[in-house]
Structures are given as C-alpha cells and as structure tokens.
C-alpha cells in the first residue's frame, strides 16, 4: 500500500467519507482561483499594480507589522502592530455590538412578542430603521460622532439590533401556545414562561438573527470603517488603496473573508448544532 493510500484512508477515518468529499469539493474553486492567480504572476498577463504576486501579500503582513515586538505588543495594540491592530479593532467593534445588541434585541423582541401593545409601538419604527441600510447612516453618524469608534459602532448596532429584535419577535410569536399553557398549568409564572418557553422556543429564529446580523453587520462595518473610521480592516483597505499599496488591499480583502468564514464555522454553526439541532427544531442536512 502506498503512502498516499494510507494517508487517504487515515483521513477518511478521521473525517468520514461524506464530509471529506464535501470538504474536497468545496476547496476546488479556491484551488482554481489560486492557480489562476499564480499563473497570472508567472505569465505576466496583468501587471502587479492590478494583481500583485501572492508572495507580496505575505510581505505586506511583515511591512505592516514592522517594529511590532511580539504578542504582548499585539495585545496592547501598540502603534507599530498595524496589521493586527486593524483586525483587532474590527473584531472589537463586532464583539461590542454583539454584547450590546444581542441582550437588548432579545429583551425588546421578547417583550414585543409577548405584548401586542408593545409590538404595535415598536414595529413601525423597526421597519423604518431597517429600511435605512447601514451605510446610509454613515454621513449623519460622522456629523454626530466624528470619525472613529462611535460612528462605526453606531452603524453596526443599527444593523445588529434591529435584525435580532425582529427575529426574536417572530420567534416568540411562533412558539406554540400549548407550551405556554402547559407551563402555566404547572404553576409557572411569567418569568418561567419567558425563560423556559419563549426564549428557547424562539432560539431557532434568534440564532438565525444572530447569523444574519453578523453577516450584514460585518459588511456594514467594513463600509463604515472606510468612510467614517480611523482604524479597522475597512479603513486599512481604503488608506492602502489611496497609497497604491495594492498588496495591502488584497491582504485586507482576504482577511475580511477569512475572518467571516472562521466566525461562521467556529462560532455560529456550532452554536446551532448545540442548541436547536439537538432539540430537533431545525431540519438537519445529511
């Protein structure tokens, strides 16, 4: 048996045949893109000002982090660590918007899902706010808050909060009445119904809301950082483009996509698997 065969059997055992095939199929387009990119550099179809060679992207990381003295400096966000600073400030904004947006969106969403009066009061303003895309707020936000953290956070929260609010509201409304009745007949009060019926019952919808708000929020953030930011990946791309540092622009774009894939795979999908899939509340593929 050749080494290759042994390795392939080992991999199949580790991941399972179906999953392995899925992963392999999913990587094909990436491999094709990378190959074309590499060929472009070799054949010189398009000059490096348009498409920089792959190696220069790696170099850009070093250039941007020149003078950065190790992990401590990265974490304390010292000025020299530009590359990681941009990543950390984008991530920090997303994290902060979730820390604020998830609890407040869920709280108000549950209230509106429970009380018709509350829903009547909040729904129109929600539709109004949702209609204004995140980016449309940027000029106003700059006037109000200047460029920087407040502006970008404001844009993000506008996206995150309303999406989670609406998804929670719809989720709570969709919880079958019989669950509520059954908890009530066991003597459960309002709080028991909220924590044991409404919130878990609305969770499929809430998780969808969080995933959507992360997706839209991430996009809105990059746009907001370009115009109204003073740091972050969006800001980095914008400034680098102005300085004709095309490899830094490429680097920024790649990092944005990779970071999103990582959050989705490592955070949001496992979250779904551990809650609503285990409870049999969503259709499970394969």
């Amino acid at each position: 048996m050749s080494v290759l065969q042994t390795a392939s059997i080992g991999l199949q055992k580790r991941f399972g045949r179906q999953r392995l095939r899925k992963i392999l199929l999913g990587t094909i387009p990436f491999v094709v893109l990378l190959a074309m990119w590499q060929m472009n550099t070799a054949m010189e179809w398009l000059p490096p000002v348009y498409i920089p060679p792959m190696a220069s992207i790696w170099e850009a990381i070093y250039t941007l982090s020149e003078g950065c003295a190790g992990a401590g400096a990265v974490l304390s966000m010292q000025y020299e660590c530009l590359f990681t600073n941009h990543i950390l400030s984008s991530l920090g904004r997303v994290g902060l918007s979730l820390v604020i947006g998830i609890p407040s969106g869920i709280t108000l969403g549950v209230l509106a899902g429970m009380s018709r009066r509350f829903a009547h009061a909040l729904e129109p303003i929600g539709v109004f706010a949702n209609a204004i895309s995140g980016i449309a707020w940027v000029p106003l936000a700059i006037v109000w808050f200047g460029t920087g953290w407040l502006t970008t956070l404001f844009i993000l929260l506008n996206t995150v909060f309303w999406l989670i609010f609406f998804n929670t509201l719809l989720g709570v409304r969709g919880v079958p009445r019989v669950y509520e009745n059954s908890v009530m007949t066991m003597g459960g009060g309002r709080w028991a119904i909220i924590s044991q019926v409404y919130i878990p019952g609305a969770l499929p919808s809430i998780v969808t809301g969080v995933r959507m708000s992360m997706g839209f929020g991430w996009r809105a953030l990059i746009a907001a950082e370009m115009i109204g930011g003073d740091s972050g990946l969006g800001f980095m791309i914008f400034v680098s483009a102005a300085e004709y540092k095309i490899e830094e622009v490429f680097l920024g774009v790649l990092v944005i996509a990779i970071m999103w894939m990582i959050t989705d795979r490592l955070l949001l999908i496992p979250l779904e698997r551990w809650t609503i899939q285990r409870w049999g509340m969503v259709w499970r593929p394969d």
């Binding site: 019989v178 669950y179 059954s182 007949t185 003597g187 409870w279 049999g280 509340m281």
Partner: peptide, 27 residues
C-alpha cells in the same frame, strides 16, 4: 391556572428543548 390541576394536552405539550427527565421534573 395552578399546580393543583395537572393537564395532559391533546398535542404533545412536552418541551422540545428539555430531555425526558427534565420535562418530567419540570413541575
């Protein structure tokens, strides 16, 4: 409603997000 009257509903009223044991111990 009150815990002196227990109800078994026509539809399956047990909570999907609780295990059998946690459903039975809910009251």
């Amino acid at each position: 409603p009150g815990p002196d009257r227990g109800v078994v509903f026509q539809e399956h009223a047990i909570l999907p997000w609780r295990t059998v044991a946690r459903n039975i111990g809910h009251g």
